[in-house]
Amino acid sequence: MASAGTIVLNTFFSCLSAVTIIGNVLAIAVFTKDGKLRSTGDVYILNLAVADLTVGAISMPFTIAENVIGHWPLSQALCKAWLVVDFTACSESVLSMVLISFDRYLQIVRPHRHRAKTFRVKLALLACTWIIAFLMYGPAILLWDVFTGVNPIQTNRCEADFPLRSAAYTFTMSFMEFVVPLALLSYLYSQVYCHAIRWFRRRPSSADGRGTATELGKMFHRRLAVNLTVLLLVFFVCWCPYMVGTMILSQCASCIDYYSVAFVALDWLLWSNSAINPFLYAYCSPRFRESVTRLVSKCCGTQTAGHISPQPV
């Protein structure tokens, strides 16, 4: 008989999975319905939604089922397949965020290079990120026992305990999956913000409208700074605890209980980033907000009230 705490926890996880699925499905539906979005950098947002939807529809439900049943109900082969999908989708989510930030950097700081990027180039970049995301953990999950003779997956639980098998591999992958993307995101967004400030200060303004222009500039800088800070902060808060815990565990196995409820909570905190991403990336785009409003109005049989004016992202 499951305890009340376990029931509440699994119910919360189920709600988180549902939010992740609904949010990302809506983002994908908006992209496929709106032809204007297909020719923009929002293709990266679509890719992010696909990766996050995979986390919400595959990673989360199987873990919930395992928690409810008390053990992994399927074969070891399916466990490996599930782990490959989970690790690849999480890694691709991070790489997609880096691509989005790089696209915004080119759009604002290097507009000529941004206009020169064709849709095929963008698709090629996305294909490369999926390959990289798979190579980070996929071969290790599939072939670890073949080359070492030790299966990194438990008999009754579908968990890849790399931190307990190889400190060097775990530390390196954690560094590549979190520290490097965080540094890239911080650099690219800082460049976007600094360039936006310089661009606004160079804009000519009339004497009569100087006060208004100054106020608009302050609002623009404040909103841009808040948006970029939130993007970085959410990624840091969701990913940092799990990655730091994994790095510590790889160096000191007795310092943290890898199979404890606390470490499971860190795993879910990382996954929660996939539930938040649609609201941070897709819905902060004015075109996406307009398209969502039209799509929801069409589904509900109502008319869209008004026009949503663009706001800086």
Rank of each mutant, 00 (worst) to 15 (best):
A4G: 12
T11R: 02
F12I: 14
S14M: 13
A29H: 01
A29M: 14
K33I: 02
K33G: 00
R38N: 05
G41N: 15
L46R: 15
A51I: 05
G56M: 09
G56H: 06
A57K: 03
A57V: 02
P61R: 05
V68M: 10
W72Y: 07
S75D: 12
S91R: 02
L95E: 08
S96Y: 01
I100M: 10
D103Q: 10
D103N: 15
R113G: 01
C128V: 11
W130L: 05
I131A: 14
I132D: 02
L135W: 06
F147L: 09
A160R: 00
D161V: 14
S166K: 03
S174W: 03
F175G: 00
F175E: 02
E177P: 01
V179E: 02
L184C: 15
S186M: 06
Y189S: 12
C194H: 14
R203D: 06
S206Q: 06
T212K: 13
F236V: 05
W239Y: 10
C240K: 03
Y242A: 08
M243N: 14
V244I: 13
M247L: 01
M247V: 03
Q251E: 09
C255W: 08
Y258E: 06
S260A: 13
A262N: 14
V264E: 09
L266G: 01
I276S: 06
N277P: 01
Y281E: 07
A282N: 07
A282C: 13
P286V: 04
V292P: 00
I308M: 06
S309G: 10
V313D: 06
